[in-house]
Amino acid sequence: MIKLQDVRKTYQLGDNRVEALKGISLSIESGDFVSVQGSSGSGKSTLLNILGILDSYDSGSYTLNGTAIRDLTQKQAAHYRNRFIGFVFQSFNLINHKSAVENVALPLYYQGVPRRERNQLAMDYLDRVGLAGRAEHKPAELSGGQAQRVAVARALITKPALLLADEPTGALDSETSAQIMQLFRDVNDEGVTVLIVTHEEDIAAQTRRTVQLRDGDIARDERLE
């Protein structure tokens, strides 16, 4: 499903060049459950953003489901992000002035799904993450764990083939972390490829494969059983 070949990414900050990714080659099979680990600044987020077509890269190639991502127009990229990928951020990234159900329904808005239908579907997904009762709440009225569950519901509502999560439990306590991980396992069981960034060993231990980054390189890549 995912095929990275020698992907490089350099940030230029004034005179400072930061090589965030120094030639990553990585293949991920459909239906896998992968964790990406590494110390702060090792390039985890950079990698995930490139996989999610949220950021560009300098050289190398990225093929997603057989499509060369570099050649996509902005419109096609938007289409891929919308239909193919679900993204969960560490900081939730909910829209503040929209209610939980409106936030969850937003990806469907960009698919042109009628309002009634998408709100109904959004309610189903909120129910699935156990937040049907909070549908009309604004993000500010939700706890961190609740907000992240709303974000997961939003990522899942388009039935993506690939779910990317950047430290989804980074801001949560262990109990809510466990709830989120349970959601991811369920989704993975349904066949969705899941890739999460984490620096917590016990989170990584719940996945099936773990990739260790160090200074923009892959240091270790092992399958857990």
Binding site: L54, Q74, A78, H79, Y80, N82, I95, N96, P107, Y110
Partner: peptide, 16 residues
Amino acid sequence: RREIGIRKALGATPAA
């Protein structure tokens, strides 16, 4: 900006 970033991440086209 952030809201627009979120919308784009969720699949909003530039035209939208």
